[in-house]
Nucleic acid binder design. Sequence first.
DNA 1: GCCAACGTTGGC
DNA 2: GCCAACGTTGGC
Length: 152
Amino acid sequence: MKYWLMKSEPTVYSITDLQEDGQTIWDGVRNYQARNFLRQMDIGDRVFFYHSNTTPPGIVGLMTIIENQVADPTQFNQDSPYYDPKSTVNSPRWQTVKVEFMEAFPAILTLDTLKKTFNPEDLLVVKRGNRLSIIPVNLTIADQILQLVNYN
DNA sequence: GCCAACGTTGGC
DNA sequence: GCCAACGTTGGC
């Protein structure tokens, strides 16, 4: 089992939205590096849910992968801002995953705390200028994040 | 609202 | 294939 971190702006889709929906297709990713990480995800992997572009930003919960190699439906939808005319049903360009809600943390684990706890090399999300919306988190760091959640 | 970082586009 | 211009992300 691997750990990941995925960002979402809470005004677009929040941990509360996921809690209500139960599960969702993580659509709209249009960055090749992020997509390549999505392709590496397996069923059962766990994902930290990160709220970006909000005050304060930080990790707010945990979800798990229940389906992988999912063709992002928005790439075929002409009315979607994520429509990709170069993508076809037979050879979709954008794969993603379906995630299921696991838990919302009792309190947000803020970016500020993450910066104080981890080195940028160990946790990419605290690295200045990093804009990747999907990043891998190694097991050691994931354990430490979960411990922080439990102790707070 | 500012702006640094950085990805993408398109002319050449 | 280079790189300037432009667009987007996202913290502050």
